[in-house]
Design a protein around this nucleic acid. Sequence first.
DNA 1: ATAGGGTTAG
Length: 644
Amino acid sequence: MSRHLRKLSSLASLTPRHQTPDCRSLLDWARVVSTRAQLQEVLDQFYAPASPLDDKALAALFHACARHKCLEQGRALHRYMLLNQNGPPDLFVSNHLVNMYAKCGDLECARKVFDEMPRRNYVSWTALVSGYAQHGRGDECFSLFAGILAIDLFAQMHTGGYGFDRATLLGIFSSLSGSSDAGVGFALNCCLQLHCLTVKTGFTSEVEVTTALVKAYSDLGGDAADCYKLFLETNSHKDVICWTGIITALAEREPEESFFLFRQSLREGISPDWYMFSSVLKACAGLMTEKHALSVHCQVIKSGFDGDTVLANSLIHAYARCSCMALSKQVFDLMESPDLVSWNSMLKAYALYGQGKEALQLFAGMDFQPDSTTFVALLSACSHAGLVEDGICIFDTMSTDYGVAPRLDHYACMVDILGRAGRVLEAQELINRMPVQPDSVVWSALLGACRKHGNAQLAKIAAIKLKELEPSKSLGYVQLSNICCSGGRFDEAGLIRYEMNWSRVKKEPGLSWIEIGNQIHEFASGGRRHPLRDRIYAKLDVFIGKLKELGYTPETCLALHDLEEEHKEEQLYYHSEKLALVFATMKESSLPRVIKIMKNIRICVDCHNFMKIAADLLNREIVVRDSNRFHHFKSRVCSCNDYW
DNA sequence: ATAGGGTTAG
């Protein structure tokens, strides 16, 4: 018999009818019990005894219900408590009661008990805040959080003692992380203030607190460098959770650094767990290099996680981003229990590579009820593969046959599908009968189509709509689009759109749309007619400026490149793309280097855009061999020059 | 005495 079960049976042999249940042993028991059934067994022992349960026993039982999310048993105990109580409820018991309801997800009841409490302390607040935080009700946390600061923390700090402890901070930080978009600015501000408070009260030395703070900053769109600084300043032992926190925070915005930290954590003796793998795979997806994804995949297998559905889903995505379609498909095919996310990830992978037929084929064999994401993947696959009729058919049947109502994304795909096929009037018609307000993505798709098929009138409408919708976000872009469209220079308008998309894909820190947009706008409105090359150089100059700010001077780039050459086997190719760009701006003097670096870069969708630009810059064709085919990137300079 | 940090499909 296991130790736990022995303990359980010795507890169960207590006779609660004749003695007050021992709170201490109940709490001990609550820790050892591992299933709901065991909980029910002991609850049966203690429930409805001859003499009323005392406060300690009630608290212990609420605690147990909270731990095992037994809402109904907790509710019954609450009713029992109300029937038998004489006098005001005990603060300690009420705190447990609030915690029980909050943990079980009944936030209304938790709030009600909380509001009716004659006296509260920071534990009461913390229990409720954590409840809201865990159930994704970020906005409601704000008022509570404000309440904590105003009523509890401040008052208690004023009287000399700390009005909160680390658990309070953890609760507040995780509630900030879950803020809705509308509250992000406010939450970030709160985060800053709480950070100050955390520093002042010395809680930054607690690894749990800094981990939560890193996540809060990262979730609220705070600076990645600040997150990293926070992580470095954690002076207590950094455990696997703390490392995972920073790897996650950097995964999307700075995948190179994220992956680097993963390797560093391994060197420091951390053994990665499930969470860490899932985070670092996200970074691999951002790195877009087969080597990184493969090396993590190996470690996943070594650690015995290869049967895990979620990790396999991440692998499918990561391999797809590295243009390793065969590996994506292999992971998918080997899965024991693929879920909807697995199917959607595979469909998205095909969409990404314009393999429309394959996507449709996969969809035909899908044994899951498709959802909204499934159709976005399918439609974008059709759009990239030019499968107009298939796309129309899917769009028409998605709500009738599958009960999925088209959303904005689906309409945007449809506009793109029709527009690319030159059916711009149909695309416009579709926009007109959309049940939701079309957004900038929809109008951009139409603008792109108009440019390609030369519909000046419609292009102007689209450009004006874009300006209305995003006056600040893409100011330069829209202005320039308007200028181009009114002058009938659709190629130019399309080019700008292309450039903006390119910069979005790069996600470089500090590279803002407005900045680039304004730069381009200056050129256009200055009345100078720059050929395409100069325009791109101008954009790259901004880009290089940013790289320099980040410490990438041409000299360091050269040194980095030499370093990479030396350590080829150690996967040091993080900086290849950045380097190639820097060298590209050094123009003729470094052409051989540019070509050499570019040949080392794995070809993938995001790289394609870069290659096109590079071909323009070098004014020549670049041929790069991928694992099984040749990619030809031709300079468009000549054709555009003809236009000019 | 109670409360608690990291997670898959852009």
